[in-house]
Amino acid sequence: MRERQTVQLVRRARDFESFVAGAAGRLLHAATLLTAEPPDDNPRARRLLTAALARTYASWDRLHGEDPYTYARQQLAYRFLMMSWRLREGRGGALGMLSPQERLVLVLRVHEGVAEEQTAALLGLPMERVRTLCFRAMSLVLAGKSGALRLTSTETVRGVERVRP
């Protein structure tokens, strides 16, 4: 009995380790885009990822066939939502010109390829709102990248946002 338990524990640890090895890179990329930090200096994103993965570890036996990657990503999104209350300002990064909510929608929809419906359910928003947020975020990112608009402060971005349809 005890031996079987040990075998199970070992298998669990091995499964989780291979999950982390496969998923951590992609999730950390997503987290760093969310927190709008430079890739080589991303303490917030690391903390976010550690917390989300620890939660996944604790719930590993209760996933009941749910994809652990989906679960971990969901935890990441929840935690980012809670933390973005306090930390509104990005520190640069590719999406630094967006608001936390715009970043979250853009990363889930475009980087992670989550369907509009699931994104809306995850964030508790109507689908229309998700579509609008995503469209606005994409416009801002492309406008910022093309160099046609030199956006430096959040104020300027907000100004542009109001002009756009």
Binding site: A24, R46, T50, A54, R55, Y57, A58
Partner: peptide
């Protein structure tokens, strides 16, 4: 150190 941190925190949660 990510994996070890995660396991430590996850075990504490459990």
């Amino acid at each position: 150190e990510l994996y070890d941190d995660v396991v430590r925190r996850g075990s504490r949660l459990l």
